[in-house]
Every structure is written in structure tokens, then in C-alpha cells.
């Protein structure tokens, strides 16, 4: 188990060493630091972990646990599967991508991601534009940012992620509750999910030039 599976990047200073069910069967999470950034990792024996539902869930659960432990300080979440060959390779990436991490943290600091999906019955006739407008009026002003996700089904009227201040969570919850009672949304099903690490609000890709 000499490879390192990385969950995300935090600014140094947080005490993040704990036992948990980690990806790939490991049971301890700890950090590897390079100057002002720490990667939160667990040991793994591959650089190409298999995508299983179970490990994907663990990845997310470890990130949630980190969010609780850092008490609102943000973790920049990695996509599933970011396993490094060695601490050296990992530190090299932390060093090289510092400016990108700094900007990402500035965007998401103290904020969480919440998801909202509105789904209609099959063949239901709903006024999509009116619904979109009603939802935007209710929620956009409460979010620092929002982004529309894929509409993989015709029944999806809305599939949106919101970046919300941790402190505004309850206000946002209340606004969603009110939305559910809105006459425009009578014929749609509301799926309100999260809180997630702000996956949808970091868009950084790091490659190596060969």
C-alpha cells in the first residue's frame, strides 16, 4: 500500500488524521503536506482504482467527514480515482498547481454544494419556463453561484447545483420548502440533495507535458 489515494486539497493547519472506511479497503485517512497545502489521503495499492459504487460512496463520505472536521473550511474535492504513485509525485503536483488551488479555495471557502432536481410525470404538460423562473426567483439570490447540470431525461425540468454559504444553509432549506408549496410546482417532484463538497464549482484539470 505505497500509493496515495487523494480525496481533496485543504489549506494547511487542519488536524485531519482519523480512522474511517476509506477507498480501497484502507481504514486510515491522513494528510501529505507541501507548504501551505495539504492533500487528504489514504493508502492504496494501485494508481488506477476501480470505480465501484461502494468506493465512490466512500470517497464522498470521507469528503463529508473532512468537511465536518474542518468546520466550514473548504476542501477542494478531487474526482474519484486520483491515486498517486508516491508522496513525491503528489507533492510535485501540489507545488505545481498552487495558483489553481489558491483560486479554487477562494471560490468555495465556507461554502457547500446543494442539488435540486425537478422531475415531471411521464407526458405531463408543465410550463417549464414558468417553473424555471419561479425557482430562479426563489433561490438564485441565496446562492453565491449556481450551475445547470445535464438534462439526461425529458422528464427533468431542472437539474441545478447551488454553491451556498454554510451559514445560509437553513435559509436555503426554507426557500426550497416554500418552493415545494408553490402552485407552479404542483405537478413536479422535488429532489433536494446534499450538502456535498463543492464538486461542481471547481473545474481544474492538471496534466503533465511530455
Amino acid at each position: 500500500m505505497t500509493n496515495r489515494y487523494v480525496y481533496g486539497i485543504v489549506e494547511s493547519g487542519a488536524d485531519l488524521e482519523f480512522e474511517t472506511d476509506a477507498v480501497g479497503g484502507a481504514n486510515e485517512v491522513y494528510t501529505v503536506s507541501h507548504r501551505r497545502y495539504q492533500a487528504v489521503v489514504s493508502d492504496i495499492d494501485t494508481t488506477d482504482p476501480e470505480e465501484t459504487d461502494e468506493d465512490a460512496k466512500r470517497h464522498d463520505e470521507v469528503l463529508r467527514e473532512i468537511m465536518e472536521r474542518t468546520n466550514g473550511h473548504s476542501i477542494i474535492p478531487m474526482q474519484f480515482g486520483m491515486a498517486f504513485e508516491s508522496n513525491r509525485a503528489l507533492k510535485n503536483v501540489i507545488r505545481g498547481a498552487r495558483p489553481a488551488f489558491r483560486r479554487a479555495i477562494r471560490d468555495i471557502e465556507g461554502r457547500i454544494e446543494l442539488g435540486l432536481k425537478l422531475v415531471t410525470e411521464e407526458d405531463a404538460d408543465v410550463d417549464r419556463e414558468a417553473i424555471e423562473e419561479t425557482v430562479a426567483d426563489a433561490l438564485e439570490s441565496l446562492a453565491a453561484q449556481s450551475v445547470e447540470n445535464d438534462h439526461f431525461s425529458d422528464r427533468l425540468v431542472l437539474n441545478r447545483s447551488y454553491l451556498v454559504e454554510e451559514d445560509e444553509r437553513e435559509t436555503f432549506d426554507d426557500a426550497v420548502a416554500e418552493l415545494e408549496d408553490h402552485p407552479d410546482l404542483e405537478d413536479v417532484m422535488v429532489q433536494y440533495t446534499g450538502p456535498f463538497a463543492p464538486y461542481s464549482f471547481v473545474d481544474v484539470k492538471i496534466g503533465a507535458q511530455r
Binding site: G8, I9, T47, D48, E51, A56, H59, D60, I76, P77, M78, Q79, F80, M82, A83, F84, E85, S86, R88, A89, L90, N92, V93, A104, E113, F196, A197, Y199, S200, V202, V204, K205, I206, G207, A208, R210
Partner: peptide, 17 residues
Amino acid sequence: RVLDKGIVIDIWARISV
């Protein structure tokens, strides 16, 4: 989210030093 979003690091950056 986990399989589609978040920071992506190319395998070459993860193994090369």
C-alpha cells in the same frame, strides 16, 4: 458528482516525478 466533477489529474502527473 464523484465520477464526473472535481479536480482531475492526469495519470502521467500522478506517476512521474
